[in-house]
Design a protein around this nucleic acid. Structure first.
Length: 597
RNA sequence: GGUCGGGUAGCUCAGCUGGAUAGAGCAACAGCCUUCUAAGCUGUGGGUCAAGGGUUCGAAUCCCUUCCUGAUCACCA
């Protein structure tokens, strides 16, 4: 039910009656009336002048007076220049509220078993770095997107792809092996992902020291990089991992376990979750197979050095490498493999990737490649691209240590919420647990609202100070308003004032309005669908006059008296459009809509 | 250089399937706590919607050109 739709239909009917022209909803420009004028909705008449062949004021005047007289929805109107301001009848609002009040999940479309399945990939962490501010934006966008889709009746599978293999993983493994002294999350009290992150940084530090030493001994930068013992060891470790060496794989499993425990904690705190997690260590080989199939089928080409390429120059793009000359896979290969596994697992209608805009090109290519490989969904994949999160001082740079850690940030938000609440005396007389709960709600609410209120595709500036300022357009302000509303209701209840079961208007319905309600009330038992048309048999004399009146208002609502029937039994043929209007009208007046409509 | 974004108040952002005098919040200033939660409310000031051209009755919104800015164009992920 939607007031704008009801209005549009009423206006279309009015135009048909007044000017004999059929217009579509797209020609009806409705907007909310500006606050300085009286009315709820405003019809812009300029697009209709060709039809009315009158000037804007006259057109507005005619439509307005027609609606005010004929439509029960419109209480009054006024015309200012070419703008027709319409005031919706109080009964309509009351019925709307009534209807909302009876629906526990107003606005939600129930998810049918055969609804289109949307798979949404988000988060996509790297196992050697803890989550940071950029991931927070990703997770919040991804999770919200899933909720929006589900609310709109889609089946949703939330998925995550974990980048758990490759040379970078070996770096942190090697550093831990060399300098870790068997440190574990338990022994150190550190969160697993942070612990691994430290060893990844440590590797980089030691590697740079080694390079500096080598360069000091007279080697060029390239020579130093080549001779680095550390890097050679890391490469060797990757080879062992790929060869499934038991010791290496066990180390990998153990350290990954620490990281996942850490991630789970962060996800939990942030309030996001996944239905299915994929790991690149399990998908990259499938990608390789797909690429090789592409070579066999002549979609891709193998060069002399053994590397495999896709030629996308036809599509206006470059050539793209899919397998290195040593046969190992690249990022794109893995994404192809992951897509393959996913579509083997689920009947996916649409695949959505929530990934930063620095990968716009990657997904443009992926879409084409999947399409070439014969994946139906390839063409329609959606890259839900979002901009970077910058700091007031500029971009986050891991080298400069300006990366905002997700856990630290959440903790800081919660602490600040607690401190502010305490200062304001809001936590007086509240238990420590409850105070914690409130601080968490407010702190994380502030963070989430601050991130989500910005257009995803834009780069945004995250100002920690400002986000913690609980004034203005912020999450805490909304929470505060909600708390006040609840408080008013609570106090009203204490005084014995309660919201009535049914909302009643103190304005009496006009005769005609009552007639329409009655007419609508008759429909549930008499509506029969026949193809695109709806046949409605109305029985009883008393309804005949009402039907005629209804017919007058809804032009394409024709009364056909069947040859072998008396006046007491006739049929209305409704177009789909009118049938849907009637459905809406019935909902509007709180009448149950039968299934078959 | 090619491709794709972005440019709206001092700051952070809405508005962009064309409609009335371009809106919020922050910051600034002036008021409002014995009565519903002052984490609030009311008011004031603040704009060449990057620039120029075009389409239209009407352009922040659509088209073209230019300028500024970001991302990307790796046998990295």
């Amino acid at each position: 039910m939607n007031i704008e739709n009801i209005l549009q239909t009423a206006i279309i009917g009015a135009i048909k009656q007044l000017y004999g022209a059929d217009v579509t909803t797209s020609q009806i420009t409705l907007q909310k009336t500006k606050k300085e004028f009286k009315g709820h909705y405003t019809l812009v008449t300029f697009p209709l002048l060709k039809i009315s062949k009158k000037n804007p004021e006259q057109t507005a005047q005619e439509i307005g007076s027609y609606l005010a007289e004929k439509s029960p929805v419109i209480a009054e109107y006024n015309v200012i220049k070419g703008f027709l301001n319409l005031t919706i009848a109080s009964e309509v609002w009351l019925n709307l509220l009534q209807n909302i009040n009876t629906q526990p999940y107003f606005g939600f479309t129930p998810v049918a078993d055969d609804a289109p399945l949307f798979m949404v990939e988000y988060s996509s962490p790297n196992t050697n770095k803890p989550l940071h501010l950029g991931h927070i934006r990703n997770n919040l966008l991804g999770h919200s997107l899933c909720k929006v889709l589900a609310a709109n009746g889609k089946r949703v599978v939330k998925t995550n792809i974990v980048n758990d293999r490759g040379i970078h993983i070996c770096k942190s493994m090697l550093a831990w092996q060399k300098w870790g002294n068997d440190e574990t999350p338990q022994s150190s009290g550190k969160k697993g992902d942070h612990l691994i992150g430290e060893y990844y940084v440590l590797f980089d530090k030691k590697y740079k020291e080694e390079l500096a030493k080598l360069q000091a001994s007279g080697l060029s930068k390239e020579q130093a990089e080549e001779q680095s013992a550390l890097m050679q060891e890391a490469r060797e470790m990757l080879r062992q991992w790929e060869a499934n060496d038991a010791q290496t794989v066990n180390l990998w499993k153990m350290m990954n376990g620490w990281v996942y425990a850490g991630f789970d904690e962060t996800y939990d705190k942030l309030g996001v979750s996944f239905d299915k997690i994929y790991y690149e260590s399990q998908t990259y080989l499938a990608g390789k197979d797909e690429v090789l199939r592409g070579v066999d089928e002549g979609i891709f080409v193998r060069r002399e050095d053994g590397s495999v390429w896709a030629d996308l120059t036809q599509e206006g793009l470059d050539e793209k490498i899919l397998l290195r000359s040593d046969g190992t896979s690249v990022y794109m290969t893995q994404d192809i493999g992951t897509a393959k596994l996913r579509f083997d697992d689920y009947p996916i209608h649409t695949m959505i990737y929530v990934v930063g805009n620095e990968q716009n090109y990657h997904f443009q290519v992926l879409s084409i490649l999947l399409d070439k490989l014969g994946f139906e969904f390839g063409k329609g994949l959606v890259h839900f691209s979002y901009g970077m999160v910058e700091l007031p001082e500029g971009k986050m740079k891991s080298r400069e240590g300006t990366v905002v850690d997700a856990d630290d940030l959440m903790a800081e938000m919660i602490d600040t919420a607690r401190e502010t609440s305490q200062e304001l005396g809001k936590l007086d007389g509240i238990s420590a647990e409850e105070a914690d709960e409130i601080a968490t709600m407010i702190g994380l609410g502030a963070l989430k609202y601050f991130i989500l209120k910005v257009d995803p595709k834009k780069n945004m500036t995250f100002n920690p100070k400002e986000s913690i300022d609980f004034n203005g357009n912020t999450g805490p302000f909304i929470q505060y308003t909600h708390a006040r509303i609840k408080s008013v209701l609570r106090k009203a209840e204490e005084q014995g004032i309660s919201v009535p079961e049914t909302l009643e208007s103190d304005i009496a319905l006009s005769e005609k309005e009552e007639s329409l309600v009655q007419l609508l009330a008759e429909f549930p038992d008499i509506v029969k669908q026949a193809g695109d048309e709806y046949n409605v048999s109305l029985i009883g004399n008393y309804i005949y006059d009402l039907a005629k009146e209804f017919n007058q208002f809804y032009h394409d609502f024709s009364i056909l008296k069947e040859e072998n029937t008396s006046l007491r039994d006739f049929r209305l043929v409704l177009s789909k459009n009118v049938a849907s209007t009637i459905q809406k009208g019935m909902k509007l007046f709180g009448i149950e809509v039968p299934e078959r409509m």
